[in-house]
Design a protein around this nucleic acid. Structure first.
Ligand SMILES: [Mn+2]
Ligand SMILES: [Mn+2]
Ligand SMILES: [Mn+2]
Ligand SMILES: [Mn+2]
Lengths: 223, 223
DNA sequence: AATAAAATTTAGACAAATCTAAAAAATAAA
DNA sequence: TTTATTTTTTAGATTTGTCTAAATTTTATT
C-alpha cells in the first residue's frame, strides 16, 4: 500500500484547500506563512503539485486546486477529523490536544482503515472542534452558525465550532469552561472594547474579549 | 512533537532487533534481505545509527543494538502490536490484513496516544498473531510454546502464535480454519514428508505440510 | 598458503524536500 | 509614468535516504 502522495505534499494540498475556502484565491506568501515555511519552498512544491495534476498554476499568475486536488484535500481532512473524534471520544483526550496528533495520523494511507474507523465511531458528522467531517465520497454539510459578537443578548445558544484552533485559544476556552455543546447566552455587550459578559449554563458569568468572541460560533433556534 | 527518529531509521532498528533476537548476531546481508533493500544502503544507515548512539558497530566486525537501541526497538514493537490488536478487536480486520497498516501506524510519535490506546484496549498481553506486547517500560513475557511438529500425538493444544507472518501462510491457515486460540490435536504424523493430520475442534480433519507445522506454535497443559 | 568466493564498504550519483541569496515580475507610491 | 516596494521565482546548496558499480576485507576452498 504505497501512498500516492508524500506527507509533505498532502500538507500543502490541505493548506491550499483551507486558504482557498477562505480567500477564494491563494498566494505563495499565504501558504508559506500558514505552513511555517519559505516562499521559495512553496514555489518548488507548486511545480510538483502541478506536475502531479492536482493544481492549476501559472507562474506569477496565482494558483488553485483542480477537481482532483480538492478531492485529495477532502480525504485528508476526513482522516484528520475522524482521528480527532476518535482521540476525544474513545481515548479521552482534551479537544485542545488532538490537533497535533491528528496532523500525523491523517497521513496513514489505508482507505479501508478510515472507513472502518468511521463506522466504529458511528459515522460522526462533526469533529471535536465542530468542523464537518466529509463522508467517504468527500461530501459534507455546513450548518448555519453565527459568532458570539452577532448573537442577540439573552438568546440561549449552543457552541458549535471554534474559528481559530490554536492551542492558545483552546486553552483559554477550557479555562472558562466553554466547550463544544456548551449552552450559554450573552448578558452584556460593552461598546468600549466590544468585550462580552456571558452566562454559561450551570456555571458562573465570564468575560471574553472581542478577539475571542469572533472565534466562537454558536447555533440557536430563532423563532 | 518532532519525532526523534525518522520512519526509515525506526524500521532499521526494528529489523535489527528481530534479527538479533533470532541469531544473536546480525549481518549486513541479513538486514538487507529482511528489509528488501541493498547492502550498501544498510551500511549507510548503520553509520547513521551509530552516530545516533543506538548501535554498536565497527566496520567489517558486525553490529548490534546497544541498550538505547533496544529500548527504541521495543517501543516501536509495542506500537505495532497495539495497533494490530486495535485493528482486529475494534475495527474487525482479519489478522492477516493488519500487519501492513501497523507498519505505518507504528511510526506515529505520541507516547501519550499509545499509552491511552493501551488502556482503551484493556492492556492486552499479546497481539493478534500471539506475539507479546511490551508494556510502556518495554517489559514483556514470552510463554513457553512448542511447534506442531513437536506436539505429541493426541495431545489437545491451543494455537498461541505463528512464526512466519507472511500473508501467504495466514491465508492458508484462514482457509483451514486455524486461528489464534483454535484448539486442535495431531492425529497422525507421516514420516515420509513430515506432513501432519490435524483434528481441529468442532471442525473436520485437515492435512498440513512440515513447512506449515514448523510455523504454528501451541500451548498445552502437560501433566 | 595461495586463490576463489562471498560479504561488506566506499565512491559517486540521484530524487525529494528544504533553505539562502539574488533576480525577475507585479503592484503600489510618488 | 517613473520609482520604490512587495511578491514570486530562480540559482545553487544542503540533508536524508536510496541506488549501482567498484574496491576492500573476510571467509572458504583448493
Ligand atoms: Mn499533517
Ligand atoms: Mn479539528
Ligand atoms: Mn514501519
Ligand atoms: Mn503481529
Amino acid at each position: 500500500m504505497v501512498p500516492k502522495y508524500s506527507s509533505s505534499r498532502e500538507n500543502y494540498v490541505k493548506a491550499i484547500f483551507h486558504l482557498q475556502e477562505i480567500h477564494g484565491t491563494v498566494t505563495t506568501n499565504d501558504v508559506a506563512s500558514e505552513m511555517q515555511t519559505r516562499p521559495a519552498s512553496v514555489t518548488d512544491m507548486l511545480k510538483k503539485l502541478k506536475a502531479q495534476k492536482l493544481l492549476l498554476y501559472e507562474k506569477y499568475k496565482g494558483f488553485k486546486l483542480n477537481t482532483e486536488g480538492r478531492k485529495v484535500a477532502l480525504q485528508i481532512i476526513r482522516k484528520h477529523r475522524l482521528w480527532e473524534f476518535f482521540l476525544v471520544e474513545k481515548l479521552r483526550f482534551g479537544w485542545d490536544e488532538v490537533h497535533e496528533i491528528a496532523e500525523e495520523l491523517e497521513h496513514i494511507s489505508s482507505k479501508k482503515l478510515i472507513d472502518r474507523l468511521d463506522e466504529f465511531l458511528g459515522f460522526p458528522k462533526t469533529d471535536p472542534h465542530g468542523d464537518p467531517i466529509p463522508d467517504s465520497q468527500g461530501r459534507y454539510t455546513i450548518s448555519r452558525q453565527v459568532d458570539l459578537l452577532n448573537l442577540p443578548v439573552n438568546q440561549i445558544a449552543e457552541v458549535s465550532s471554534i474559528g481559530d484552533q490554536s492551542v492558545e485559544i483552546l486553552e483559554l476556552l477550557n479555562h472558562k469552561h466553554i466547550a463544544l455543546g456548551t449552552r450559554l447566552e450573552v448578558k452584556k455587550k460593552f461598546a468600549f472594547d466590544n468585550s462580552l459578559e456571558l452566562k454559561i449554563k450551570n456555571q458562573s458569568t465570564v468575560t471574553i474579549s472581542e478577539h475571542v468572541a469572533k472565534n466562537v460560533f454558536v447555533k440557536y433556534d430563532d423563532e
